[in-house]
Design a protein around this nucleic acid. Structure first.
Lengths: 217, 217
DNA sequence: ATCCATTTGTGCGTATGTATC
DNA sequence: CGATACATACGCACAAATGGA
């Protein structure tokens, strides 16, 4: 079971590019250098570059637009894969699945949160409070807040699932709020603060039910 | 935004191969034809075949062994991806995530099951009862039983996740039972039958808690 | 134990098509 | 229209690993 120390040029390059993407050196939406430029840069043929890019395009991390350039689509393989899978399902099923995840993560967060998690969560909540004016910023910071709760659950599997799912759902959420408006601000804020308190108190069941209420607002 | 009239040879071939795999024409473990043979068969260059294979290797559906051949690893992209993701996580986290899924699917199954679902579930239970003697068969038929409950939940997102996760967990389960033995047969059977009844009665909460108990046996 | 045919891995060069600006 | 840039596809050559004679 010895593993090869040598990596093919293609894989080396694919890895380096993936690192640039995951580390946000090339954020989502970035137009990356042309194949020829990359070929010069890495001192290989354009063909080799193509194979590397192809492998990332195949899994949905990159998107090539003929006559234009190559763009970053997602920040990781798992996220890209979930995107594809979720797009095949009905929207209501995705939302249902996400509701269950959110509830369970709140439960686990109350159980497993550390003092450090609490500080991060409180901070994320402050940020969210300061950005209630702009809808787009609100959705963004609210997402960040809930993501921190998910992280405090300390379960990497559920966390990855949640992360992939929410980034997919964001667009739906934003357009929904834009249409319907955001009128439950006080109730929402109250529930959020109760949720934080429940997590502080490590009251798992209360956290779970509060999370459920927040979602169905 | 009109694009998709013509599919590239590479993608056509990748699709055809994927179909052979998903349809079990080439089951897991199969050694598929050599690149040269496929090239002749599809009347394209070996390079084109390689690109198609490469795309499936990349997502973990195929595995190439230099000097030997190319083998089927998983029966679908999503399954392959979950495999990879789960292998990075701690075992306890995987189990925790699976518990969460099992509970929620039982809840939803009680809510959404149709008469037809019930018939299938009852049948799967009978099959499981008839195969208690052989441990390997027991794990297999028990898995099939729970899979039918998952299906009855009528949520494709959670169902796909569950399916991918259980196929990963099977090996662990089997080895655990082989080591520890299977001594809780009566209790297990009793709980399973109560679960079926709860689903018949559409008692979501009871189903959920019974599912939780069954897992922690 | 050695050799050898087979099979995949790697890399390059080239040609042509097509989309965008 | 033309320049640019990606898309597709083929052919070739050699390297490296494997399995079997």
């Amino acid at each position: 079971m010895k593993k090869p120390v040598r990596l093919s040029l293609t894989k080396q390059i694919a890895n380096e590019i993936e690192i640039k993407i995951e580390s946000k050196s090339w954020p989502i939406g970035t137009k990356i250098p042309t194949e020829s430029q990359l070929a010069k840069q890495f001192e290989v043929s354009r063909n080799t570059i193509r194979e590397a890019l192809q492998s990332l395009i195949q899994v949905g991390v990159l998107e090539a637009r003929p006559g234009d350039g190559t763009y970053v689509l997602a920040s990781g393989k798992f996220e890209a894969n979930m995107y594809h899978q979720l797009s095949l399902a009905k929207a209501e099923e995705v939302i249902e699945a996400r509701c269950f995840l959110e509830k369970n993560l709140a439960y686990l967060a109350a159980q497993n949160r550390t003092a450090n998690d609490l500080a991060i969560i409180k901070n994320a909540w402050q940020v969210r409070l300061e950005n209630q004016a702009d809808l787009e910023r609100l959705v963004e910071t609210d997402g960040a807040f809930h993501l921190e709760i998910a992280r405090a659950a300390h379960n990497s599997v559920l966390f990855e699932l949640y992360q992939a799912m929410t980034s997919y759902i964001y667009q739906v959420l934003l357009s929904k709020l834009t249409d319907e408006g955001y009128h439950n601000a006080e109730l929402s804020n109250k529930l959020h603060e109760e949720l934080i308190q429940a997590i502080i108190d490590q009251d798992s069941h209360l956290s779970e039910s509060l999370a459920a209420k927040i979602i169905t607002l």
